[in-house]
Each structure stands twice: as C-alpha cells, then as structure tokens.
Amino acid sequence: MNDSLSAVTIRISGHDGDEIEAYAARPEGAERRGGVVVIHHMPGYDRGTKEIVRRFAELGYDAICPNLYFREAPGAAPDDAAATARAAGGVPDERLIGDVAGAAGWLRSLPTSNGRVGVIGYCSGGRQAVLAACTLDLDAAVDCYGAFVTGTPPEGFPLKVTNLVGQLPRLGAPLLGLFGVEDSFPGPEQVSELEQILTAHGKDFEFHTYQGAGHAFFATDRPSYNVAAANDGWERIAAFYAKHLGA
C-alpha cells in the first residue's frame, strides 16, 4: 500500500491511432511494478471510476482508465457522454480492443513497468475486460459482473452487443470473476455457463458469487453498493493481481 501517488488526465493513442482522453494514477517511487487498465462501467468515465484508478495506485500499480466515450462526447459530463454512446449502440468491440491496447502500451512504456499488465472492468466493462483478454497480450483479467460474456441480450437492449462464447477458447490470461446472486445480467445461469465453458477449455480462472448482492455492488455512489461483497471483492482483486502482476 502506497499512500503517496499522483493522478492526472492525459491523452493516449487509442484505436486506429486516435488521440483519446485517459485518467492515470501512479504511486511514488521508481521501483518496477505491474500496470492495470481499468475499463469503466456503462455509466461512463466518472468520479467513481477515477477513484478506482487511484485505488490501484495505492495498491502499488501504475493504473489508467481510457475514456471510451471520448470520441462521441469530448468534454461532456459522464451521464451525457454515456447517453450519447448508448444512443450510438455502445462502444464497438474492435474500437474497445484498440483503446485497451493503447492503454496497455502506455503502461508498458513507463520506466517503472515490469512488463506485466492486467485489465479490470465493471458492468459493460466486465465483458470488455474478458474480450480484451481473449484478444490482447495481457497477464491477468478481472470481470466484475460483466453482462453477455455468455447469454443473449434481451429484445430491445440498447447496445449492439453479442456474447463472447466463440472467443472464449482464446482467453489468454488468468481470469477472476466477481458476481452477485441477485444480478440478472449476468444471472447465475450465465455465470454457470461461463464456468462450464472455461473448464472445458482448461482455462485458469476463479469465480466468486456473493449472496445478497446484485449488479454494480462495487459502486459506492449507487444504491446497489454492497459493503460486504465489495470489501471481499477488493481483497480478492488485490491477491489476484499480486500473484499475476507483482506489486
């Protein structure tokens, strides 16, 4: 744990070389360490997400969150940017992969990098974290209640999104999954399907599902926040990244 850190809004090169906004936090000191790409939830690149980025810096990692909605709504408030992105069908998978690749490349370019980078995502970002780990060279991935890794979006769902069942055989990083029993997307049956697929393909994963917790149980500024589940989840994230990224 390092209480001394710096945090700053920067620009990085994302998909197709686009310059996008990102929020980065780093602990003080020159020691080599792992990096974490934080993928924000569907409500966007908001204060809660930036607090998560700083928390990873406190845990001893260089951390960065790309603003996935920057192209649609540069400078807009998070709620407005999220609404604009939803109206456009959400973030295309190919663009997400390029933006995460840019963020991971930025982390690995730092003089403090030990070369290892993990990814973590919440809500829609949970699915995107799994997608990134199926596509990019990453060392660890955390899926916090990501919808439609398996399963099918309901009719009328606002995002143009498909499940990742066909891509899961390419999962190239250890995966930690954190879910709530009371969640609907993903519901327990979708989590079970994901577990069965990963087991069948011999993947390295561990899942934890919390009784009494629903979707977005990590979100401290929302009614869904579940103290017990979030606290235990953070402990598991810290141990998982310490094992696979080094801190």
Rank of each mutant, 00 (worst) to 15 (best):
D232A: 08
K160E: 13
K243P: 00
R222E: 12
T152R: 14
E58C: 12
E193T: 14
D80C: 03
E193I: 10
H244V: 00
P154I: 11
V191Y: 01
F218T: 10
E31W: 07
P74R: 07
Y241A: 02
D80P: 02
Y145V: 07
I39M: 12
A87F: 09
S224C: 12
V142M: 03
T84R: 15
D139G: 04
V38P: 00
F217V: 10
V91R: 09
V181D: 07
E155W: 00
G14S: 08
E58G: 03
G60H: 11
N231D: 15
A25N: 05
A81T: 02
Y145T: 13
L198A: 11
T9K: 04
A25K: 09
A247L: 12
G246Y: 06
Q211K: 14
H208S: 12
A7H: 11
R55A: 02
G44M: 00
L107A: 08
G75R: 10
I197W: 00
F205A: 10
A141Q: 11
P174I: 01
R54N: 11
Q190M: 15
E72I: 11
H41Y: 02
E31Y: 09
H201M: 01
G75D: 04
D16T: 12
P158R: 09
N226R: 09
L68V: 01
E182M: 14
F56C: 10
L171N: 06
A87D: 15
I197C: 01
A228K: 14
T84E: 14
T162M: 01
E51G: 14
T152Y: 06
G177H: 13
L159C: 05
E235D: 15
F240M: 00
L175H: 05
R86W: 06
A200N: 09
L138G: 02
R127F: 06
A82K: 01
F157K: 01
V227H: 12
A173F: 05
N114T: 12
Q196K: 14
R95G: 03
V53E: 07
V130K: 05
L198N: 06
P111R: 10
E31F: 04
C65R: 08
G125T: 04
L176C: 03
R95I: 03
K243A: 05
D18V: 03
V181K: 13
G44E: 10
L96C: 13
A81E: 11
F56Y: 15
G34R: 05
A247E: 09
V36K: 06
G35R: 03
M1K: 09
C65G: 07
